[in-house]
Design a protein around this nucleic acid. Structure first.
Lengths: 144, 144
DNA sequence: TTTTCAACAGATAAAATTATCCGTATAAAG
DNA sequence: CTTTATACGGATAATTTTATCTGTTGAAAA
């Protein structure tokens, strides 16, 4: 459904929200290990979420690493999708038409409409922190 | 949502179902023009739907081209997704975990579950012919 | 102040996807 | 039978996505 970039971004954010805090920062090495992702590539992706967007915080040097503020943990999953540019993909038409709309729909449009609405609602409603809490409770996993 | 390959495959199949029949075959030139897609690439994709899968029929030579039998028009949209390898994507986990399942779910799994069910149902229920009929009536479009 | 540890930034590389080109095979038309 | 129009197949190229590497910067610890 999403690009690798977005998948790693989501998993990393969930893990950071789960284990990290301002006085317990997580290194990229630990993150890549925890979510089973390519380390360098994941580092690049985290730059999108720190520098560009402000979903994740980071500090270099000894005892440095990544963490999320309590406020950031309340952000919707959708904010990650925006940071990786996936919100555009999500809003696209099933048949790939640029100008598919209510007034000029593709054949799938009326049938897909309500599903797309549910998808957007899901990502806008669900917070990163909520997913992280679930993962911490041990009922769900972010690694194979 | 889908790859370009799948998008072109869907649009092409809908157009062929709409305009083509055993005694009115459509050339690749006409198809690419009608759905506004790169011609050579679309030709390659149609090979997946003719040689490999049997969703679309073809005949070379003068008055040759592509068409769909009435039986093939009754096939679900899902059969196109299978031909382009997209069914795998559709069955993938939101976070990209290979082994996300009911017994070892990712944090998105329980929340995405019902949406995924609707998506699969949509593609399994809807037929290529139905979409083509709608397009022929002029209420929906397969080109920008 | 110096050392050390970790993120940052830019360059580069590998792989997958998207796209084109051209000669060949095939079937119908003349 | 020859010509012609079309799909077929393989090779190749361009672009995008995924991934790695290396040196630099910044902040804390020593």
């Amino acid at each position: 459904m999403f690009s690798k970039t977005t998948e790693y971004a989501l998993r990393a954010a969930i893990y950071i929200a789960q284990e990290g805090s301002e006085n317990n920062k997580i290194s990229i090495v630990a993150i890549a290990k925890a979510i089973d992702s390519p380390q360098s590539f994941t580092a690049k992706i985290l730059q999108l979420l720190t520098r560009d967007s402000k979903v994740i915080s980071s500090v270099p040097g000894p005892n440095g690493g990544f963490y999320m503020t309590e406020a950031a943990k309340q952000l919707p999953v959708y904010s990650i999708l925006v940071a990786t540019g996936e919100d555009i993909t999500l809003n696209k038409c099933v048949l790939g038409l640029d100008k598919c709309s209510e007034s000029k729909p593709c054949p799938m449009h009326p049938r897909y409409k309500s599903i797309k609405k549910q998808l957007l609602q899901l990502f806008e409603t669900e917070t990163i922190g909520k997913l992280a809490t679930d993962a911490k409770l041990g009922s769900v996993f972010i690694k194979n």
